[in-house]
Simulated assay, not measured.
Amino acid sequence: MILVTGATGNVGRRVVERLLAAGHPLRAVTREPSRANLPAGVEAVAADLADPETLRPHLAGVRAVFLIWPFTDPAVTARLAPRVAEVFAAAGGPRVVYVSAASAGEDPDSFWAVVERAVAASGVPWTMLRPTGIATNALGWASSIRAGGVVRWPYGGAARSLVHEDDIAAVAVEALTSARHDRKTYVLTGPRTVTQAEQVRIIGEAVGRETKWLETSAEAVRPMLAGAMGSPEFADSALAGWARLTTEPEPVTGDVQAVLGRPARTFEQWAADHTADFS
């Protein structure tokens, strides 16, 4: 049995689909199982990472856990992550595959890094997946592209090595089902960097319509970004990160290919897979 958290998210849903296709029994944690709309064959159970004890009854027979952490506040994470990891350890130490972030290696105080340390300290087998950025971030421009094709956003020159969400899921499934990835950390990226302005152009080519990047100040989007991210501090961190990427592009690694035996998918492939979202 494999336990999946975040099963209704962009990556988690792909993990569920891949595990089901491979014939693995699945149990998905959700706060409201009746509304999860998960595929047939998935056992949906009610639990909440905010209350780690609710996980305990659902870990019987579980040999691996796919972990998506839902809390961005470092203080909340510092309180909850060790308790969640302790519940995993007490259940026999299932393998934990955690979708972290590349920034965890740079900022030890980030919530990403706090969760990594808690999982590692618990003694369970683990694999840390650190995407530089997930290509589905570009879905934030979908309404603008549908409405007229003009994206008003700052830092068009920010160069990102965005990774396809299904590549993350494929690596996660490999790690969930094989001990050879235990105690390993993978930095997951696309095969090259693409600036934000280039992303908009590529999406336009995929959907067959003209798109345009209109450079906007960071201050103009900060209030909206803070609301969407739930924190002014998180918004400021994102804006500072994009500013840095205009002069220091995100790294490109070969970790997706090392695990899967094939190259990571390009942003062009991602855009082609998501034409319905922008049309």
Rank of each mutant, 00 (worst) to 15 (best):
M1K: 13
I2N: 08
L3D: 00
T5Q: 09
G9E: 01
R14A: 15
V15M: 02
V16A: 01
R18A: 09
L19R: 06
L20I: 12
G23H: 04
R27N: 13
V29N: 07
R31T: 08
R31P: 06
E32L: 00
P33S: 11
S34P: 03
A36R: 02
N37S: 13
L38E: 15
P39Y: 09
A40H: 08
G41P: 10
G41E: 13
D51L: 05
T54P: 13
L55R: 10
H58E: 14
L59N: 11
A60Y: 00
R63V: 09
P70I: 07
T72G: 11
A78K: 03
A85R: 10
A85K: 09
G93D: 07
V99P: 03
V99F: 00
V99K: 02
S100C: 12
G105I: 04
G105E: 12
G105R: 06
F111A: 13
F111K: 01
V115K: 12
E116P: 04
V119Q: 09
S122V: 11
V124G: 07
T127H: 12
L129Q: 11
L129M: 10
R130D: 10
R130F: 06
I134N: 10
I134D: 10
N137S: 11
L139I: 12
L139Q: 14
R146D: 15
R146F: 03
A147F: 04
G149I: 08
V150M: 07
W153C: 01
A158V: 03
A159V: 14
L162G: 13
V163C: 12
D167G: 15
D167H: 12
I168W: 00
V171P: 08
E174S: 06
L176E: 08
S178H: 09
A179V: 07
K184Q: 15
T185R: 07
G190P: 07
V194Q: 00
V194L: 03
Q196K: 00
V200I: 14
I203V: 15
G204I: 10
W213Q: 05
L214G: 02
L214R: 07
E215M: 11
A220L: 02
V221M: 01
P223D: 08
L225H: 05
M229V: 01
S231E: 05
S231N: 02
A238G: 02
L245F: 06
L245C: 07
P251F: 06
P251W: 02
G254I: 04
D255S: 06
D255V: 03
A258Q: 03
V259I: 06
P263C: 10
R265I: 14
F267I: 13
W270H: 03
W270A: 01
W270C: 09
D273C: 03
D273V: 02
H274T: 12
F278V: 02
